[in-house]
Design a binder for these strands. Sequence first.
DNA 1: CAAGTAATAT
DNA 2: GATATTACTT
Length: 376
Amino acid sequence: MIKCLINMKREKCCEYIEALEEERRKINVFQRELPLCLELVTQAIEAYKKEISGTTTDTLYGQPECSEQTTGECGPVLDLFLPIKQSSTSTDEEEEEEEVNEDDDVEHESHDTDIDFDDNNMKSEWLKSVQLWNQPEAVPVNKSERSQQETQTVAEPIKENNNGTWSHQPPCYETSNEKNDYVISLATTSGGSGRKKTEAERGGSGGSGGSSGRGQRKQRRCWSHELHRRFLKTLKQLGGPHVATPKQIRELMKVDGLTNDEVKSHLQKYRLHTRQPSQTIPNNRDSQTQHFVVVGGIWVPQASHPKANAVASRETTTGIYGPMVSQLPSEWPSHSNFGREVSEKRSRCSNKGIVRCSSPAMSSSTRTKTKDAKMS
DNA sequence: CAAGTAATAT
DNA sequence: GATATTACTT
């Protein structure tokens, strides 16, 4: 009898171990973001192994989920880990993956980490910025928003050097983390009134000449992670970066203080990143002639890979948003500086080579401009 | 006025 | 060099 129980238990343990190892493999990809998580799982595995190996002391009860048991085994460990906001980050990422890409994650467990690594870096970059706006003043929150923002008790811990593309430090002053609230400040039903720009104008505009200049440049606005996510979401809703207009985006985002110009600028940048990620794949050398088609707002290389179809179909169901590089789960379609040295110049030409068919709800006029037509 | 794009500032 | 703002064009 007892033996039986023990056997069962061992079996269970084996299952757990396998599951945990599987998990660990997954986490391994994110080891930069979730080092503790990784550690935790590893410890759990070891604990189980130990248990199997002998000393089947107690804990015969096999719990379906390792919840109880884990706490039993590595109680202290968990306790150590819990207070850390890691949870928030993880949820964040999960959300991200769910929203933006669902099928990709299947691939990257056995990846050679190169891309993943980069990507991770990027993510950590994003995670660094917590607040949406860098406005010093406390902004009223509209808590009646959707679930998105309650999760983030995020904070500093990810310091990481910033070599990523999106590491901006300048204007985000006083990140008085801890207390500060990365508030999203949504216009409550956006009653028109709002829209205080909060120019802030570094008051005296002290030092360095300037002064007297009324042409003061606006305070630089950081697009924090959250804000960008919002942006993306909205973009998706509107049907992709190439069909959404700044105004629509701004209105749909409902972020107080966000101006059309800011959105426009961001959109511009985003579009730039979006197009031509051309990973410089060797076989791609005729890329100049490569044709792209717009499928519901997405740029898809006409190459007709099965993948392309998959992407397209997926996007159309979810809402469109398509950087056509399927491997990057990040918010941004690709790392920048890829097609630089070559395509920078060429991009304009190739731009015209691209076949833009069917821009959904768009007046053809918009696209017909091709500034060389103005030579009348 | 709004959208796109280019130039310019940080 | 990347990102944000402003200027200019359509």
